[in-house]
């Protein structure tokens, strides 16, 4: 059973910022890492891990005051926390709700690990991948065809 303190932490409203709900259990710290939230972040951050959930059995939740996601951050989050729900809060109200989905294409946020790929060699092109499998997550470089998966991929997120 959740304690009163836990419930309070989860339900306390924030005035302005982002609430990310339905994060796969255990991934909340990774989410904060992707969002660049560290010990220097000046506003309130609440994090709950392995909270009971009707839909997921267990889930993580992150609330970040004063934070709006960039498209690059959303793209990365969709890869580590697919199906998580991003709530954009303004004046204590949910202004927008976005369910994160793994995209068909991933551009610029991840590097190809092939040192001979043109994207790693001063050419005027940016890394770009096709998502060829969502479970497990496997990306394929659009330039050199190499696959990016497992630890090689998660280390870049």
């Amino acid at each position: 059973m959740e304690t009163v303190e836990e419930k309070k932490l989860i339900v306390t409203k924030i005035k302005e910022g982002t609430v990310i709900d339905r994060i796969p259990p255990g991934k909340a710290l990774k989410v904060l890492h992707v969002l660049g939230i560290n010990d220097n972040y000046p506003y309130t951050v609440a994090l709950a891990m392995r909270v009971k959930s009707k839909k997921m059995q267990l889930k993580d939740i992150v609330k970040i005051k004063g934070k709006m996601l960039t498209s690059e951050e959303s793209q990365k989050l969709s890869l580590i926390a697919p199906n998580a729900v991003v709530n954009i809060i303004n004046d204590y109200k949910v202004e927008k709700k976005i369910v994160l989905e793994i995209p068909e294409q991933v551009s610029e946020i991840i590097k190809c690990l092939n040192p001979n790929c043109v994207t790693n060699n001063r050419e005027p092109v940016f890394p770009s991948f096709s998502v060829i499998s969502k479970e497990p997550l496997i990306l394929q470089c659009k330039y050199c065809d190499r696959l990016l998966e497992g630890q090689n991929l998660s280390e870049q997120l």
Partner: peptide
């Protein structure tokens, strides 16, 4: 070329 993905550069440039 020894690099891979040259085709995409050619298509673009």
């Amino acid at each position: 070329h020894y690099l891979e993905g040259v085709g995409e550069i050619a298509k673009k440039y």
